[in-house]
């Protein structure tokens, strides 16, 4: 009696009011549905290649007037492209030409963003493929020139990747020189501006390093006394090294 009351609310009639054919048909159709599902082909994961992005104007139109949010969403989608449902594809299988187009258009939607540059310098440039690494570093360099004082850190990362991963000192020096020449804002730290001096030293270009370091100290750009002392010390070391090499 109590069990019956538990299953039956005041708005419901008893189970006996249901014709038996309905109960039977319900059970049979439910069983058939389960069996049917069991014999359906299982979902198969398919790798989809990255396709070229639409133009910035089209993406702007479909962002419903909020390009920044759309840019963030697109960046997350792009980043997760290697983890497609049911399958993981290595970054090196991506078409880096198309990837660069996507990064450019995402950055164009939100020019203040750092995410696409970070992804290029630190994520997509980690592939064991020198040509693809160079593509990413070239992209960072290209975008750096558009706002050097705001994007300097990504070119500094690119210089690091060029020197230590690509083992291409000339490319690293090119980036370091671009930093010194274009990232001249006060917010850019001195270590970034001085990067080319230390790279020249590593490359054995001691005279060039000496000239640059001496010029930097004489220009009066270095205000911090500790830093001045450190750089004077480095200049002395360079001179000693240079003298001992003759």
């Amino acid at each position: 009696m109590k069990l019956n009351a538990f299953f039956q609310s005041s708005k419901e009639r008893s189970m006996a009011s249901i014709p038996i054919w309905i109960l039977l048909a319900l059970l049979i159709s439910l069983a058939v549905q389960i069996i049917w599902h069991k014999y359906q082909p299982v979902p198969v994961a398919k790798v989809t290649q990255l396709s070229s992005p639409p133009s910035e104007a089209i993406l702007n139109a479909i962002s419903f007037g909020d390009p920044v949010a759309f840019s963030k969403l697109s960046m997350l989608w792009l980043q997760a492209h290697d983890n497609q449902p049911g399958v993981s594809i290595p970054f090196r299988q991506l078409d880096y030409e198309v990837l660069t187009q996507w990064l450019s258009v995402i950055l164009a939607l939100d020019p203040k963003a750092h995410y696409p540059l970070l992804s290029a310098a630190r994520v997509f440039a980690q592939v064991p493929d020198a040509e693809k690494q160079r593509k990413m570093l070239t992209f960072v360099e290209h975008e750096f020139y558009k706002a050097p004082n705001k994007r300097w850190q990504w070119l500094a990362h690119a210089a690091f990747v060029a020197k230590h991963r690509l083992k291409d000192q000339k490319l690293a020096l090119k980036f370091a020189k671009a930093l010194a020449d274009h990232a001249t804002g006060e917010q850019v730290p001195n270590w970034a501006k001085q990067m080319q001096i230390f790279l020249l030293e590593d490359m054995g270009e001691l005279d060039a390093a000496k000239i640059l370091l001496g010029g930097l100290l004489e220009s009066g750009q270095i205000k911090d006394p500790h830093e001045q002392q450190f750089l004077h010390q480095r200049l002395q070391e360079l001179e000693d090294k240079s003298a001992s090499s003759f």
Binding site: K11, E12, I18, P19, I22, L26, S29, L30
Partner: peptide
């Protein structure tokens, strides 16, 4: 079509079950 027949049968019988119990 087969999936539709099966699933519509399930839903219809479940709906009838509820309708017949309704006071």
């Amino acid at each position: 079509i087969l999936q539709t027949v099966i699933y519509v049968s399930v839903l219809t019988m479940a709906g009838l079950f509820d309708l017949y119990r309704k006071n």
